[in-house]
Amino acid sequence: MSISIRQIELKDVAGFHAALSSVAGEKKYLLTVEPPPLDRAREFVKKNVEQNHAQYVAVAKGSVVGWADIVPVARQSMEHVGHLGMGVVSAYRGQGIGNQLLKNAIAHAWQQGLKRLELEVFADNEPAMRLYRKHGYQVEGVKRYARCLNDVYQDVVVMAQYRV
């Protein structure tokens, strides 16, 4: 099966939103359990395209099946920091798609001049943590009992890497 990894385009908004909705709907991997409305997703993608932020998609059979974005933090004195968001729809996991998406997004973020890349991941998501470590992220801390969903608590691990 042919899967292409490329920078997102405006034509990908609906596909990106569908992939995000699919992963969020699992309520396992993202802090977001309800996807944003389509118009907010469109604004997010439009801004990333216009400002050449690192946002990549994986496309298979004409559908977006994964994404990774590293977007600068919108706070004064923190513009050098990028925050990672990513996901791969369940049917396409375990095929190296996340690895390729992350590789492209990180390279793009460094080229854009970001100095620190950070993320949050659930402590029980060991495959994701292995992937992030492989790409240079290190654990900086743990937020204990950071999420409670359906009376189940999860710790959130804060990971980052930096270049100064």
Rank of each mutant, 00 (worst) to 15 (best):
S4E: 14
P37I: 08
G15Q: 11
Q95Y: 12
N99A: 15
K61N: 06
R116T: 15
M159Q: 10
M86Y: 01
Q112D: 04
R6L: 10
D124E: 08
L131R: 03
A109Y: 06
K103T: 14
K28G: 01
V88P: 00
S63Q: 15
H17E: 06
K134N: 08
P127T: 08
I3G: 04
P35H: 13
V156A: 08
Q51E: 07
P127N: 07
A41N: 15
S4A: 11
V64H: 03
E50G: 07
K115F: 10
L38D: 13
L10A: 08
Y162D: 07
V57G: 08
W67T: 02
P127S: 04
I70Y: 09
Y153H: 06
G66R: 02
L20S: 03
L131K: 02
Q112F: 01
E43M: 13
L149W: 12
K143L: 11
R163I: 05
A128C: 06
T32G: 01
K47H: 12
G98T: 06
R130T: 00
L84M: 10
V13R: 02
P72T: 05
P35W: 13
R163Q: 07
V45P: 03
A160K: 09
A107P: 05
Q51W: 12
G87M: 02
H17I: 04
S21H: 14
Q95L: 03
K46P: 04
R130V: 02
G141D: 10
D124C: 07
L31D: 01
V57E: 05
V88A: 02
Q95C: 11
D69V: 09
N125K: 05
D155C: 14
G98Q: 00
S22M: 07
N104D: 12
Y132I: 03
V33T: 15
T32R: 11
A146R: 09
Q7E: 15
M1H: 14
G15Y: 00
Y162W: 14
G113Y: 03
L114D: 06
I8Y: 11
E140Y: 03
A105Y: 01
R144H: 09
H80D: 04
A68L: 06
R147S: 07
G136S: 11
K61E: 01
K143G: 06
E9P: 00
H108P: 08
N99S: 14
G85P: 07
R163H: 04
E50T: 05
N48P: 01
S63N: 15
G82H: 02
V33R: 15
V13H: 02
H53W: 15
K61Q: 13
E118V: 09
I5G: 01
R163P: 00
P127V: 09
Q138N: 13
T32A: 12
L149K: 08
Q111I: 04
I8C: 11
K46Q: 14
A128R: 00
K61A: 14
A91F: 10
A14T: 11
H83V: 04
A19H: 00
V59T: 03
C148K: 13
Q7C: 10
G113C: 14
E126F: 00
I70S: 01
V156S: 11
R144W: 01
G66N: 02
Y145T: 10
G94A: 09
V13Q: 08
R6W: 12
N150H: 12
M159D: 02
V158G: 15
C148L: 13
L10F: 14
A54Y: 04
V156N: 02
E79R: 05
K27I: 07
S63G: 13
V57C: 11
A160V: 10
N150T: 09
